[in-house]
Design a protein around this nucleic acid. Structure first.
Lengths: 208, 208, 208, 208
DNA sequence: TATGAATGAGTCTTCATTCAT
DNA sequence: GATGAATGAAGACTCATTCAT
């Protein structure tokens, strides 16, 4: 006796972990486009094609979705940096890493926005979400490590890798965030702007 | 004998234009702390010590409060830059201007946050708020002008003042915004970090 | 010694009863245009050029303004009818009165709207405002009296002046209110429409 | 052993489309009684026995509720006219249609009031609500068509069916709206009043 | 007489979340 | 696993009205 038409024998289409991914993907797109506060759970649910309560089968709250995206964004960035960044022999190698950073941001403005331009209370590194801080620090650590390595190889070339890494990171973040947030600004040729920005900051890695 | 004008000790707090300023001050603090979307008109009213509708006697909408704060913040920055920035003869003079920028941001983190807060729909520099864009562009224009002047004086020293101004501005914004947004991060010595960051960016003004 | 230009020797400009009239005039115009619920006391005050609380020096409430306008409208109509309506010798004389009615409505759509299309609770003749009902009944009484007179003169011509007066009144009201409320409707030639409508209803005055 | 499906005795009131109808019914009653502007969504929700936000699961806005009621009212009227009105051979057949009109209004005073309620900005047949105008015109069109048919059959009997239809419609509307709006008025015998009113207007259909 | 200032109660509407099924 | 239905709390904003001056 055939049981009344059920879509698939065991898992319904897009159930389980896949649903979770669908939700994250939709939320990432929407958060990036309209901002964290500009997106409602209803919109997310609709974008996924499920009902609102279904979201809560996968996430405890809207905040948890945002946090997961935040952590993932940093992981993705970290992964890219780890993959693309080789042992630096010259500032050019640092420039490659910086370029990876920029490309990540511009290719994934949603993720970048979620990761770095996290709205909400400022003035505290969201201690309630330790994962968020941790994943951010890890990505930063790679850059810091590269600069330290580079300087170690050229002991006469530079000092204070910590400070320099922070300075360079900040310089990158400024460009990426402004390019994302102000697309209407009359920027000069983007490619050239980015290229020079990256090279200049990379050269700073060996500053004394 | 006229009795000495009885002032009611209760409601004479601050009328007229002063109330307006009180509201702006409270809104600035709250917006800076919790973000534009994280603050309700109720909270603003409560912080001022008035009822919600009273706000609407001074501002047409919450948006108007935010816009006014935004414009004021950039005006203040513009004023500081205009006052402090002299005709640049060397990158050091540019560094002075950049330092003014940083100091403004760190001394008025709320205002700085509000100034760059208008990142609504991911992009769109809010054409509906021309003042908002205008005030930002004016402040930027001063830096751009300085760099152009400097290069004009040293024709062999640099080119593309537009692109450089954007690059330097971005570099500054990155540092200021991160210092404000991540106070918990293990920054190296702030003063030294800022000082070198500023000098490095200023040196870029004469890049070729 | 000429006193400093005051409009009138005693009353300050627009003070006292004149103010009251100004308020009523402004309210009549606004109520007629936007409806009773579509007009706020602020709008009335602004139209008059005074502050909101000033209204309450002349009227106890917004409702009192509306009521006064209502009563006045009926009085005006009553006055016009009393003036223009002569002892009826034929239906033509009734037609004259009906035409007065229509003209009143179309020339003073604001007043007509206030008088007859009074929004609010229906199903009761606002017993809380006895004046309103009274003034309405008075105007109606004139029409009823005309018809009775006419029939008395032509004893074979008609009966039931009460019912006929109500019927004719209703017929008039329907046309006036629709012409006022639906100006966008594709009415045929207004003058001709009104003229025939009036004559037909007047002829009914002698129906048996 | 499966226990017999427990039905919760509390919340099973009326789900889905039935809720929608409940809301419409409650809104119709309230709008008819207190007017469109005199009723709040809270009152509607309370009358239905649900919370305020629940309304928005069934209607996008208060305006949508009103529009639906308006359209329904005219549709109902249109349906009654279409059903009851036969090819007119004499004014008596027109009288039947007019009587249907009156009966509809008096049996459904709320609906009638709602149908003619959309008198917003004094004029403007709400071009933003095309349905509203359309449904009204459709009902009127039936009457117009009847009169034209009648005159076509008796070519010597009447002219200008458009103008006559408007005149007769206005005459009906006046009586119905006053009977509804002024129940406290000392009307003569209602049945007789209506009957004669209807017959008189119907006779006008063949006026020259 | 007139008003600047203020407000409690109310408007419509949207939110994230939960419950019973 | 999924949902239809529902809601308390809150959102921005407007209202008629009333103080104290």
């Amino acid at each position: 006796m055939p049981e009344p038409s059920r879509r698939s024998p065991r898992k319904a289409k897009g159930a389980g972990p896949e649903r979770r991914e669908e939700i994250l993907a939709a939320a990432l797109r929407l958060f990036g486009q309209y901002g964290l506060y500009g997106v409602s759970t209803r919109q997310i649910a609709q974008a996924v094609g499920v009902s609102q309560p279904t979201l809560y089968a996968y996430f405890a709250s809207k905040d948890e979705i945002a946090t997961e995206l935040h952590v993932r964004a940093f992981r993705e960035l970290e992964g890219r940096l780890r993959t693309g960044a080789r042992d630096p022999e010259s500032p050019d190698d640092v420039a490659v890493a910086l370029r990876i950073y920029v490309d990540f941001g511009l290719e994934n403005p949603d993720a970048y926005r979620v990761a770095f331009m996290f709205e909400g209370q400022h003035g505290q590194d969201m201690p309630e979400h330790p994962d968020v801080s941790a994943s951010g620090h890890a990505a930063f650590g790679i850059l810091r490590h590269m600069i330290a390595e580079l300087q170690a190889r050229h002991p006469d070339g530079g000092r204070d890798p910590d400070g320099l890494a922070q300075s360079i990171w900040a310089g990158m973040h400024g460009l990426v965030s402004l390019l994302i947030a102000r697309p209407g600004f009359p920027w000069t040729d983007r490619e050239q702007l980015i290229d020079r920005h990256v090279r200049m900051l990379a050269d700073m890695a060996m500053a004394r």
